[in-house]
């Protein structure tokens, strides 16, 4: 299953809830959630730790727009919109954590 997170992970429950609830699978960070994929953010440790349970992807056009494309945490996979489409197609279902 693909979990799509779009809200900033600092001060928003969506990411934490997803990590708490979701069965192992894939996570895609888009829109304001892309900050979670950057080195030095307060949740970097958590993102690294969660890579045991989830394959974590980040939508690069959103990260580029926010000026942080050069700081992706090791192991987080960068995707473009085409990659986003592939992720949705490859998973049986997807949930947006709105």
């Amino acid at each position: 299953m693909l979990h799509i997170i779009n809200r900033s992970v600092l001060g928003n429950a969506a990411f934490d809830s997803c990590l708490r609830v979701a069965a192992p699978g894939e996570i895609l960070l888009i829109e304001d959630a892309v900050y979670a994929a950057t080195k030095g953010n307060a949740l970097e440790g958590k993102v690294r730790e969660m890579q045991n349970r989830f394959k974590i992807h980040v939508l690069m056009p959103d990260l580029e727009a926010r000026g942080l494309a050069d700081r992706v945490i090791d192991g987080v996979s960068p995707v473009d919109y085409g990659g986003f489409v592939d992720l949705v197609a490859a998973n049986k279902n997807c949930q947006s954590w709105l």
């Binding site: 609830v21 979701a22 069965a23 049986k92 947006s96």
Partner: peptide
């Protein structure tokens, strides 16, 4: 529990969130 909830989600065909 969170775990049971996660498993239930995985079994769905369509997940709608608003």
């Amino acid at each position: 529990t969170s775990k049971e909830m996660g498993e239930l989600m995985g079994q769905q065909d369509v997940v709608l969130s608003f």
